[in-house]
Design a protein around this nucleic acid. Structure first.
Length: 100
DNA sequence: TTCCTGACGCTCG
DNA sequence: GCGAGCGCCAGGA
């Protein structure tokens, strides 16, 4: 699935711009790399909205398409993950991509 | 419209 | 160096 398709789907969902920006920022994370919630918040336009970033990713309608598992905490911890498998799957994906 | 919660971050003890 | 507490913005009820 191409990024363009995902962007089109995001447009289809009724979500705020900030929320879409967060998802797009997450999509911009290359495989094997990880970004902190702070970084994603900054890319979304609100560096101090790292709390909202978690809320946005938690409600992401394209969980399998968006690599939300590449978003970790600033201290290097995995943080939380509402996807299938939870933090364990998240960590496993990061290891598979060589991000860990 | 208002209040509460949240996939966090930073500072203080 | 580790643990606890307070503060940030956005969304949902």
């Amino acid at each position: 699935m191409g990024r363009k398709t995902i962007l089109a789907k995001l447009e289809g969902y009724r979500m705020s711009e900030f929320r879409k920006r967060v998802l797009v920022a997450t999509l911009s994370i290359p495989r094997g790399e990880t970004r902190t919630y702070k970084q994603v918040a900054a890319m979304a336009g609100s560096p101090d909205a790292y709390r909202a970033v978690g809320t946005a990713l938690k409600n992401n309608p394209l969980s399998p398409a968006i690599p939300c598992h590449r978003v970790i905490k600033s201290d290097g911890s995995i943080g939380n993950y509402s996807g299938n498998g939870g933090r364990a799957a998240k960590l496993r994906l990061l290891k598979s991509e060589g991000a860990v």
